[in-house]
Simulated scan of single mutants.
Amino acid sequence: MKLSEVDILILPGLYGSKDGHWQVRWADKIRSAALVEQADWSDPDPEDWIDTIVKAVELAERPVVLVAHSLGCIALAKAAAQLTDGKVKGAFLVAPPDVYRDNAPEAVKDFAPVPRDPLPFPSLLVASSTDGYCALETAADLAGAWGSEFHDAGEAGHINIESGHGPWPEGLLMFTRLMQRI
């Protein structure tokens, strides 16, 4: 599938994606991409985030590919059951957080329980062995539950600006491979 044939909806995580974050850069560079804006980035309401994702997909005029980072991955997994009409063609999931870890912020814990049903579309989950928000084994377990292809990005932190991932060209290559697969 070509980028020009789909609407790419980008789903940031807790606090949104700041200027320079790879998600913002992709939204700026890819003509068919747009950031999905949530009402409250700092104190998210899970149901509100889910509804926003569902509405964004419904409003898209073409098939959709979702690109989620961090808490956006969990919100997408929770919204997936409502996205079963075949409009979503795939998802690129990056650095999902472990909402069950002891030191997780309350805003993240509010997204529990995390669905463990397979996603109704192809997906690729990318995680890091040095992500302070989720152990690599936990991310691999989520990928297995969701039926996602899994990629270990090595020592890449939370795959955000703080871990040195502004443009993240390796991520764009992985995303391109997902697009070729779907």
Rank of each mutant, 00 (worst) to 15 (best):
E5M: 05
E5W: 03
V6R: 03
I8Y: 01
I8K: 06
L9P: 10
P12A: 09
K18C: 07
D19S: 13
G20A: 05
Q23L: 13
Q23G: 06
R25F: 02
W26A: 10
A27E: 13
I30Q: 10
R31C: 05
A34L: 05
E37M: 08
D40N: 13
D40E: 06
P44E: 01
P44D: 00
D45A: 13
D45Q: 11
D45W: 07
E47S: 13
D51A: 15
V54Q: 08
V54H: 10
L59Q: 14
A60K: 05
R62A: 12
C73L: 14
L76Y: 10
A77M: 07
K78C: 12
T84S: 15
T84H: 10
D85V: 10
K87N: 05
K87T: 07
V94Q: 02
P97V: 10
R101M: 09
P105K: 04
E106W: 05
V108C: 01
V108G: 00
P113T: 09
V114L: 01
R116H: 15
R116C: 07
P122C: 06
A127R: 00
S128N: 04
D131K: 11
T138D: 08
T138P: 05
T138V: 15
T138H: 11
A139K: 00
D141P: 03
L142N: 00
F150H: 09
H158N: 12
I161W: 09
I161E: 13
E162K: 15
H165N: 09
G166L: 13
P167M: 09
W168G: 02
E170N: 14
G171Y: 00
M174D: 05
M174S: 04
F175I: 01
T176H: 12
L178A: 12
R181Q: 13
